[in-house]
C-alpha cells in the first residue's frame, strides 16, 4: 500500500489545527435577551462584529430544547457567525446538525476562561484590521508617552517604542508592550481579556492592571523594579516575572 502521491495531484490535505475561537457562553436561552445585549455590545466595539466566527456554548443552560435557529438568526443579524454548538443534550446536538452547525462535547469547566471582548491580537482576524500594518486593531506608538498623556488601543495590543513616564497612562484591550521604561500606569485587557499581559523593558510602573486585577507600585516586589518583566494573570492574581 503506497500513499506516495504527488502533492500537486491531491485536491486537499487534512491538517490538525488549533484556531483561536470566540466562545459565546449563553446564560439565557431567550433570543430577545441575547439580541438586547448584542445590540449594546455592537455600539461599544463595532470592530468585533465583523462576521466573527463563534461557538455557542450552552453548557450552562439546563434546557433540553433550545430555540437554536432563532438564536443563530440573532447572531447573524449582529454579524456574528455561529459555526458550532458546544454542550447540551441530544436534541440540541440534533438541531445543531440540522442547522448545518458542528457540535462539540462539553469541556472541562476548569479550563475555560472568560473572554469578554476582543480575541488576543495574535488571533488571525484580518477583518478587524483598520490601521495598515497593525493586525487586529492594535497600535504602535513611537516616542515617549509623557505625564498627563493617555495612549490607548481599544481593540487590540498596544506597542510603545519608547518610555511611558510617570503620570502617563497606557491602555489596551489586548496586551501592552513597552520597549523602554514603564513608569506610568498600564492597563491591559480593559474589556476583560484575562489572557492579556504587560511586557516592559524596565519596570517602574505606578499601576499595573490586567482585566481589572491590579497592583500598585508599593505592592510590587522591590527586587523586580528596574528589570525587564512580564505581567500576566495567574489564578486571578497578577504574576510579575523577570524576563532576564
Amino acid at each position: 500500500m503506497s500513499l506516495k502521491v504527488d502533492r500537486a495531484e491531491m485536491a486537499f490535505t487534512f491538517k490538525g489545527g488549533m484556531l483561536p475561537m470566540t466562545v459565546m457562553e449563553l446564560a439565557s436561552a431567550d433570543p430577545e435577551r441575547i439580541r438586547e445585549q448584542l445590540s449594546g455590545k455592537l455600539s461599544q466595539s463595532p470592530a468585533f462584529f465583523q462576521h466573527t466566527p463563534v461557538v455557542l456554548s450552552v453548557e450552562k443552560l439546563d434546557e433540553p430544547h433550545l430555540a437554536l435557529e432563532r438564536i443563530c438568526a440573532v447572531c447573524r443579524t449582529h454579524k456574528l457567525l455561529p459555526v458550532a454548538v458546544r454542550g447540551g443534550a441530544d436534541p440540541v446536538k440534533q438541531s445543531a446538525w440540522a442547522l448545518g452547525l458542528g457540535w462539540f462535547p462539553p469541556t472541562d469547566a476548569t479550563r475555560a476562561r472568560t473572554l469578554e471582548e476582543v480575541p488576543p491580537a495574535d488571533a488571525p482576524a484580518p477583518e478587524v484590521d483598520k490601521q495598515p500594518g497593525v493586525a487586529s486593531g492594535g497600535r504602535i506608538y513611537r516616542g515617549t508617552v509623557r505625564s498627563g498623556q493617555q495612549v490607548s488601543a481599544p481593540e487590540g495590543d498596544l506597542v510603545v517604542i519608547g518610555a511611558v513616564n510617570a503620570g502617563a497612562e497606557v491602555l489596551a484591550a489586548g496586551s501592552i508592550h513597552v520597549y523602554g521604561a514603564l513608569r506610568g500606569r498600564a492597563l491591559a485587557g480593559i474589556h476583560g481579556d484575562t489572557g492579556a499581559g504587560i511586557f516592559c523593558r524596565e519596570l517602574r510602573a505606578e499601576l499595573l492592571s490586567v482585566a481589572g486585577t491590579y497592583k500598585r507600585l508599593e505592592d510590587i516586589d522591590p527586587h523586580l523594579l528596574g528589570s525587564s518583566v512580564q505581567v500576566v494573570l495567574r489564578d486571578a492574581q497578577l504574576g510579575i516575572t523577570s524576563l532576564d
Partner: peptide, 12 residues
C-alpha cells in the same frame, strides 16, 4: 521633572 514632562506633552 514630572511637570516638565507634562509641558513637553503639551508642546507636542
Amino acid at each position: 521633572v514630572r511637570d516638565s514632562d507634562r509641558i513637553l506633552g503639551l508642546l507636542a
